[in-house]
Design a protein around this nucleic acid. Structure first.
Length: 829
DNA sequence: CTCTCCCT
């Protein structure tokens, strides 16, 4: 212990924490920081009568760190050094160093924000940036600034960028400590382009077995790739004594042990592992690491509110951590299956969990802490807004938050359970109904991997899993289910039963599964749309795989839905009897009265609907909309479909055009263009559609009165004068004016009727000469002009020649201004 | 051909 590198920096750290409230320790692997640091502070003056809390991200590491520190003091765990984790704790009266796992720290902070007699809190492996560690630090920092100015904080990390943490801690000093590992040579092996990941890995394994001594550790993204690489290697010859050892989280414990244990003499071990071997497990005898540079990670999709697994490139920090695994006992080699150029493009660090995960639980913890806006707390990376808002919305739906975002008593009970808010709500509701035993088993089943593999897994009915579990509990029969997962589920459900102090009885059968599941997933209650498709209460569509008996259920609850765009696929679900839905979710129903336009009948109708989110549970039509509702809908339809729906007649069309003409001259006149009319239907049209219900009624609308209604009495007089419907011409005829083009009204009149008229008639306060269409006796257009005087002077004589030829019986005077106008062949004498 | 890892 004396020779550990950490010993060199401890005096420095003591000095710093004597004066400062916070420090950052960057220590490379093998420095001995986890077990060397905490005991060093026990005798510091500021620690008198106080204890040390150290956060460890994994149970195994927490327990073994406590055991090791206790052994160094010549004690057993539970004396000076203890630990505390879920369902397991060894702490005594004299314990001054407590190693805790993440959920425990959160619960401790929440139940006593002043942290009692804790003098120093250490965050170990902080570079892993788990959600709970980030939350724990945020809460601790606030507790320190508000309640406990004397509290010391020490952040310990392997590769973290020390400056950012230091800044968050108000400029805390950063101490660096070298590690004690052997050098590892890095060899970049750029991909051969077409080679599959597994083929490239297998080729590298053969090369390593040939070139290097000792065991080989291969990092692959997941179980599928591990199995493929295994097959790839088995398909060709391997050197004598080579054994292949898969290693991933879901592998049975005995096989995990076999992968971790040292190789038997005469054998060489090739461990094919996921990122579990990056931090969680140390494998003896590894001299060569082969890194495919990929890892599988869960991301939360705000679009669908569902988590999804993706395979992404590792970060530089992660790749270095993997490489370090080759140098723990002797110098080693690391083959990276990418180029050094590609390496430069890798991100420096993994994306912190808080940036990518479901934040419902975080939102609940913050609400319990008394914070509604996460920006009120200090973060290295603040929780992203969309997933946070989605988490808060879910909490409101589960009754954990009130409308204002404050935590409810129910929310407090949920947080105390520690489970995901969905599971916590289900457990509490189930306990009220006396169904806790089944709910604990469901929560455990949902948390673990599927009990079934292969063809049995194709049936998505959750009750089949429940029945299998109950059979296993009663008679230890596995019945085709995975025994390791059965045991894990049983263990977890016992933990939950103990937490809820529920009766130990084994439920008789799976009945009630759908109802309990609907408490956890109220947003995924699905209503049958036919053809295996369901509409979920949250608004998303989802479909069963082919041939599922469940697809005949009118209502289901979808516990697992994949994240594909458009219609999701239901992986796991249970039938929800309609009467249970109606009985137990009535509090979440919304009643909606909707008055709407029925296109088919062309009329306004009303209906009342009972909704659960997007689902219409009940609908009654035959309601009578009120007169005002009807007017609203009618105006809405006109607004959407256009003014063509109105009963236009020639008079109204002309009236509108005349008003448009006036508006063109004086903007204080009402604008009667389409856009303006559609925008002000409420003012000018509503009074005229009272009592109307349908399109037929609308045809009886006195439309010209509606237009006249836009003008007061004076304006109406003025309209008749300045935008007259007719103009009297010299012949005595009253000729209608055509306002189709409101900028240039047209007077179409036979030429002879205009004899004697010197100038163009003007309208619009004398500002606008009408556009004259001068016609032949047969009403053929001869000439268009807005300057009659100049027409008489010149063009008339050419036109006259032409007219005389065609209409010889008519009267074509040489001096039209002196001639008598006529609407006949010749003037009457 | 759905399945990284951890924790209350």
């Amino acid at each position: 212990m004396k020779q550990l590198p950490i010993m060199q920096v401890l005096p420095d750290l003591k000095l710093i924490l004597n004066k400062n409230k916070a420090a950052v320790l960057i220590a490379e692997p093998g420095a001995g920081k986890t077990t060397g640091t905490p005991p060093a502070f026990l005798d510091e003056p500021w620690m008198s009568g106080k204890s040390i809390l150290m956060l460890e991200p994994r149970r195994l590491a927490a327990r073994s760190a406590a055991v090791y520190m206790a052994a160094c003091l010549g004690e057993s765990v539970g004396q000076t050094v203890g630990y505390r984790m879920r369902m397991d704790s060894k702490v005594g009266k004299n314990t001054r160093i407590v190693v805790v796992t993440e959920g425990v720290l959160t619960r401790m902070l929440q139940s006593d924000p002043s942290l009692g007699d804790v003098g120093l809190i250490i965050f170990d492996e902080f570079h892993e940036r788990s959600l709970h560690a980030d939350l724990g630090l945020a809460l601790t920092l606030e507790a320190q600034s508000v309640l406990r100015e004397d509290l010391r904080i020490l952040i310990m990390s392997a590769t973290l960028d020390g400056e950012r943490v230091s800044a968050l801690l108000g400029g805390a000093p950063v101490v660096d400590c070298p590690g004690r590992t052997y050098p590892v040579e890095t060899i970049y092996v750029p991909g051969s382009g077409t080679a599959q990941l597994e083929q490239a890995a297998a080729i590298a394994v053969r090369r390593a077995l040939d070139e290097q001594p000792g065991d080989v550790l291969v990092f692959l993204p997941g179980e599928r790739e591990i199995r493929r690489t295994e097959r790839e290697l088995q398909s060709g010859a391997l050197p004598q004594g080579t054994v292949l050892r898969p290693l991933y989280g879901q592998l049975p414990q005995a096989m995990q042990d076999a992968a971790v244990a040292p190789a038997v003499p005469g054998e060489r071990k090739v461990v094919l592992a996921t990122s579990i071997a990056e931090t969680s497990l140390t494998i003896e005898g590894v001299r060569t690491v082969i890194d495919t540079g990929q890892r599988r990670t869960q991301v939360f999709s705000p679009r669908t509110g569902m988590p999804r697994l993706t395979t992404v490139p590792v970060s530089k920090a992660s790749a270095d951590q993997r490489r370090g695994r080759a140098g723990r006992t002797a110098p080693g080699v690391c083959y990276r299956l990418w180029s050094s150029e590609e390496h430069q493009r890798l991100p420096d660090d993994n994306v912190p969990e808080i940036m990518e995960t479901d934040l419902a639980q975080l939102a609940l913890e913050l609400a319990l802490w008394g914070v509604r806006d996460p920006a009120a707390l200090p973060w290295l990376d603040a929780p992203p807004a969309a997933p946070y808002a989605q988490g808060a919305a879910l909490l409101r739906q589960l009754g954990a938050l009130d409308a204002g975002g404050a935590i409810t008593p129910h929310g407090r009970s949920m947080a105390a359970l520690g489970a995901h808010p969905r599971a916590a709500h289900m457990l509490l509701r189930a306990a009220e109904l006396g169904a806790a035993p089944l709910a604990c088993r469901l929560a455990a089943l949902l948390q673990e991997r599927d009990l079934f593999k292969g063809p049995a897994a194709a049936d998505s009915d959750l009750t089949l899993r429940v029945e299998a579990l109950l059979r296993f509990e009663r008679s230890a029969e596995t019945g085709g289910a995975d025994p390791a997962i059965l045991r894990a589920v049983q263990r977890e459900s016992r933990n939950l039963l103990a937490q809820l102090q529920a009766a130990p009885e084994v439920p008789r059968d799976s009945s009630g599964t759908g109802l309990l599941l609907s408490f956890a997933y109220p947003d995924r209650v699905g209503q049958k749309r036919g053809d295996g498709a369901f509409l979920l209460a949250g608004g998303r569509g989802a479909a069963m795989r082919e041939g599922q008996p469940l697809s005949r259920s009118p209502y289901i609850v979808a516990a697992g839905v994949d994240d594909r765009a458009g219609q999701g696929r239901i992986m796991l679900a249970a039938d929800l009897p309609e009467e249970e839905l109606l009985r137990h979710h009535a509090g979440s129903f919304t009643e909606e009265r909707e008055v709407y336009w029925d296109k088919e009948s062309g009329s306004v109708k009303a209906r009342r609907r009972t909704l659960l989110g997007a689902l219409v549970l009940k609908e009654t039509s035959h309601e009578r909309p009120t007169a005002e509702e009807t007017e609203d809908v009618l105006l809405g339809v006109i607004s959407a479909e256009g003014l063509e729906l109105l009963p236009w007649d020639k008079g109204t069309v002309q009236l509108r055009q005349r008003m448009a003409f006036m508006h063109g001259l004086r903007t204080d006149w009402p604008d009667v263009a389409d856009e303006a009319l559609l925008g002000s239907l409420d003012e000018w049209l509503r009074p005229f559609i009272q009592g109307m219900r349908n399109l037929r009624d609308l045809q009886r609308l006195p439309l010209s009165r509606a237009f006249e209604g836009m003008l007061d009495w004076n304006s109406r007089q003025k309209l008749d004068k300045e935008a007259p419907t007719h103009i009297a011409v010299p012949s005595g005829s009253r000729i209608p004016l055509d306002y189709s083009n409101p900028g240039a009204p047209v007077l179409a009149v036979r030429l002879q009727e205009m004899f004697g008229q010197v100038d163009t008639p003007r309208i619009g306060m004398g500002q606008v000469p009408v556009l004259l269409h001068l016609l032949s006796p047969a009403r053929r257009p001869m000439q268009v002009t807005s300057d009659l005087a100049s027409f008489w002077r010149s063009t008339y004589f050419e036109v006259k020649k032409d007219l005389k030829g065609r209409y010889p019986k008519h009267y074509w005077p040489d001096d039209p201004l002196q001639a008598a106008p006529t609407n006949r062949t010749r003037p009457v004498k």
